[in-house]
């Protein structure tokens, strides 16, 4: 969502494709109205957010590789199961298009809490999806309760992953609410991007 918004704000034509077939809860579809208002086209299974629990793909899937005049942000599920979808269009993406493939990592998640376990998951995703990662996005967070110290403690983790995968750390995400706690120097030095938390917590 944040990436798509940023591309749109820079004046480019962009669509967001939610290709997660595994999790039927928390879909980009939740933000369909907001995206529409911003002029960002949403590609999403028509059964997302319904009671039909099947791993369906949107019929617009092929637009991603056919429409070369547009940017596409693809949301792939966070494990190899989710990445199998990417395998369907990976050959065309790698052959014909300029692309970035970001590994969004969070050291506060239980199965990826160190660089080694994260790299194992990234390797599984690459194998299933048929596309190699080109960068790491350090998205380490504890939801609404994330502190500045949590962010500071995550840099070594993301660097280690980047080193092991021979790719750069693209940037580190920080909840917009924490913006005032970082100096301009820190923002620059640590390459921080302030974003809105999309995963709205339940009451």
């Amino acid at each position: 969502m944040n990436l798509a918004k940023e591309i749109k704000q820079s004046g480019k034509n962009v669509a967001l494709a939610d290709l997660d077939i595994v999790n039927p809860y928390f879909r980009a579809k939740d933000s369909e109205a907001e995206l529409k208002k911003l002029g960002i086209h949403l590609i999403c299974s028509e059964y997302a957010n319904t009671n039909l629990d099947i791993p369906a793909l949107p019929d617009e899937l092929y637009a991603i590789t056919d429409q070369t005049d547009k940017y596409f942000v693809l949301d792939i599920g966070g494990d190899d199961r989710g990445a199998y979808v990417l395998g369907r269009i990976a050959p065309k993406i790698t052959e014909e298009r300029n692309f970035d493939c970001f590994a969004v990592v969070n050291m506060f998640r239980p199965l990826s809490k160190d660089a080694e376990s994260s790299v194992t998951i990234l390797n599984e995703i690459e194998y299933a999806g048929g596309i190699n990662f080109t960068g790491v996005i350090n998205n380490s967070n504890l939801g609404e309760s994330t502190t500045k110290d949590d962010i500071l403690s995550s840099f070594n983790y993301s660097k280690e992953i980047a080193l092991k995968k021979h790719i750069p750390v693209a940037f580190t995400t920080v909840n917009k609410k924490l913006k005032k706690e970082f100096s301009e120097l820190e923002v620059k030095e640590y390459n921080l991007k302030f974003m809105e938390l999309q995963d709205k917590p339940f009451l």
Binding site: F108, R109, K113, L142, G143, S145, D149, S153
Partner: peptide, 8 residues
Amino acid sequence: MQNKVLMK
């Protein structure tokens, strides 16, 4: 180092 993890 804190012990919290973000879990479903």
